[in-house]
């Protein structure tokens, strides 16, 4: 078991929780991941930005063990778990049983107790015995997050888990993810195409294009972050530029609350 005693912000000198070298994945003649290298430090929150087809979901699937690369290596220290864009709860299992599904080696009572505990963490205590079909989109996504957390993973893979939620629910989910990350300190790889989401949550934002990392930004602002903060706003323009989107220069700079 990897012990997590890191207090200081993670540095490159600690041995990485995830180590990816020379990763290559092609579908026919289409090169999706092209000789990709990436390290993620223990407890580091990394956001992976990219347009559709940039290879970001493929990278996540490989780390989750759902896809195999043609070349290269991936090393993950400890357990990894995934929360997907759709909650993917089994409709025929009650919420607690869905959450406990990753704990099959334990007794039923043990599974229920641990599931109840994690459901409490994500604020779903009252939905323990509900059928997934009765949950709202946000609740289902919380349950899905609980299922990913139930094994206390060293690496949490988040595949656009908030993109299907309404804007208000998404803000709540951002706060929730930061809360559980603060409490458990797993390494996080968040795949997203939302620049603001990446800037709000991550220690490091990586831009993937045509299967290669084309840009990296460290975000050192303390959380919770205000998106209108000068440094963040600057990062946004930079990231959008690397994604091939030119954001119009603000014609009212006075409206920005520069602290």
């Amino acid at each position: 078991m990897a012990r997590r005693l890191i207090e200081a912000p993670p540095q490159a000198v600690t041995s990485p929780a995830v180590r990816i070298r020379g990763l290559r994945r092609t579908f026919g003649s289409n090169v999706v991941l092209d000789d990709l290298d990436l390290d993620i430090a223990p407890g580091e929150f990394v956001a992976l930005l990219g347009r559709s087809g940039s290879g970001k979901s493929t990278l996540l699937r490989i780390l989750a063990g759902l896809d195999l690369p043609q070349a290269g290596s991936t090393e993950v220290v400890g357990a990894a778990s995934v929360a997907f864009q759709e909650p993917r709860l089994l409709p025929w299992r009650r919420v607690a049983d869905n959450v406990g599904l990753g704990l099959r080696r334990r007794s039923r009572a043990d599974r229920r107790a641990r599931a109840a505990e994690v459901l409490g963490e994500v604020g779903l205590t009252d939905k323990t015995d509900a059928w997934p079909v009765t949950l709202s989109g946000g609740q289902a996504q919380r349950a899905s997050l609980a299922r990913a957390l139930v094994n206390d993973p060293e690496l949490l893979l988040l595949d656009e888990p908030f993109s299907a939620l309404d804007a208000l629910t998404r803000i709540e989910m951002h706060a929730l993810v930061l809360k559980v990350w603060n409490e458990h300190r797993p390494s996080v790889l968040l795949v997203t195409h939302d620049v603001d989401e990446a800037l709000r949550l991550a220690d490091r934002v990586i831009v993937l294009s045509a299967g290669r990392i084309v840009h990296e930004s460290r975000v050192t602002n303390p959380r919770p972050r205000a998106l209108h903060d000068e440094a963040i706003a600057h990062r946004r323009i930079e990231l959008l530029g690397h994604l091939g989107v030119a954001e119009p220069e603000s014609s009212h700079p006075a409206q920005k609350e520069s602290a």
């Binding site: 759902l66 778990s81 995934v82 997907f84 993917r88 089994l90 599904l101 990753g102």
Partner: peptide, 27 residues
């Protein structure tokens, strides 16, 4: 197939995926 994938990501073996995902889904 997304549910079957989710089962794999949760570490369910082939027989466990059949028992927990495929058979109840086919019922």
């Amino acid at each position: 197939p997304k549910l079957i994938d989710a089962g794999r990501a949760l570490g369910l073996s082939w027989s466990e995926r059949i028992r927990h995902v495929i058979l109840p889904g086919a019922l």
